[in-house]
Structures are given as C-alpha cells and as structure tokens.
Simulated assay, not measured.
Amino acid sequence: MSALELRPEVATAPADGGMVLLDERSGRYYHLNGSGAEITRMLLDGAAPGEAARRLAERYALAPERAAADVDALIASLEGAGLVAP
C-alpha cells in the first residue's frame, strides 16, 4: 500500500488534539487521538506506511517495530470501518 486515500464520502476535521472522521454515508463519527491523527495526516499527505512509521519512531523515540505496528493497526482500523478508498 502506498499513501492512504479516504473514500470521497469521508470528511475530516481537527478536534481535541486529534481528528474526527465523518462517514457521510452512515452518519458515523470516528475520533482519532493525537498520534492517530498525526499518522493519518502523514498518510493522506502521501507518505507510505513505512515512511510514516519511520517518522513516528524518530519523533517519539519508539522502536521501529512498534511504530510500524501502530501504523499498520491504524490502517487496518480505517479499512475495517470502510473509510479507505479501494
């Protein structure tokens, strides 16, 4: 997977140190915490998951494996919620 692309029906907005995603099809809101929002912004701005994990590891002094697992888990959650474009 390269950069993340949300479905056209998903709107984003900053909120409480994180990000809110609104699935306009279902009317459901999803709240991302600060790190989830940061990862999502990196991916939406064109970073590949590996690059986002590298940046996350550097910024927060995380083990690279932990950062990669966090990025992968976020992507899986977004996909599972049907928010990611095919």
Rank of each mutant, 00 (worst) to 15 (best):
Y30K: 02
E24F: 00
L62Q: 12
G50F: 10
G18L: 03
L32F: 11
A63D: 15
V10W: 01
M1G: 11
D16V: 00
A67L: 06
I39A: 10
R54F: 13
V10C: 01
L4Y: 00
P14K: 04
S26C: 06
A63E: 12
P64V: 05
R59S: 11
A53N: 09
A76M: 02
A53D: 04
Y60I: 02
S2I: 00
G27H: 09
S77D: 11
A47L: 15
A73F: 05
R55A: 12
S77R: 15
R66K: 12
S26W: 05
S77V: 04
R28D: 10
E58Q: 15
L22N: 01
V10H: 01
V84D: 08
A53C: 11
G82N: 09
M42N: 14
P86Q: 10
E58G: 15
G50D: 15
A81N: 13
G50I: 10
L56H: 14
R66Y: 08
A68T: 12
A13K: 01
G46D: 09
S26M: 10
R59N: 08
E65A: 14
G46C: 10
A47N: 13
L21F: 00
L43D: 12
A61S: 12
E38L: 15
R7M: 03
L83Q: 07
G34V: 06
L74H: 08
M19K: 01
A37T: 13
A47M: 15
R55P: 03
M1L: 00
A13Q: 04
A76Y: 02
A3S: 07
R54V: 05
V10D: 01
S77T: 13
A69T: 07
H31I: 07
G17I: 03
A81S: 06
G17R: 05
I75Q: 08
S26P: 08
G36D: 12
E79G: 06
A15E: 05
S2N: 03
M19A: 06
A15Y: 05
A37D: 12
D70Q: 14
A61K: 12
D16Q: 08
R7D: 03
D72Q: 15
V71S: 09
R54Q: 14
A53Q: 13
S77F: 08
L78E: 07
L78D: 03
L74D: 05
E51P: 06
H31V: 11
T12P: 00
V20R: 08
E5V: 05
Y60V: 04
L74A: 02
R66T: 14
E9T: 10
G17A: 02
L6R: 04
E58Y: 06
D45K: 15
E51N: 04
L74G: 08
P64Y: 04
V71D: 09
E24L: 11
M42P: 06
Y29Q: 11
P49F: 13
A13C: 00
R54G: 08
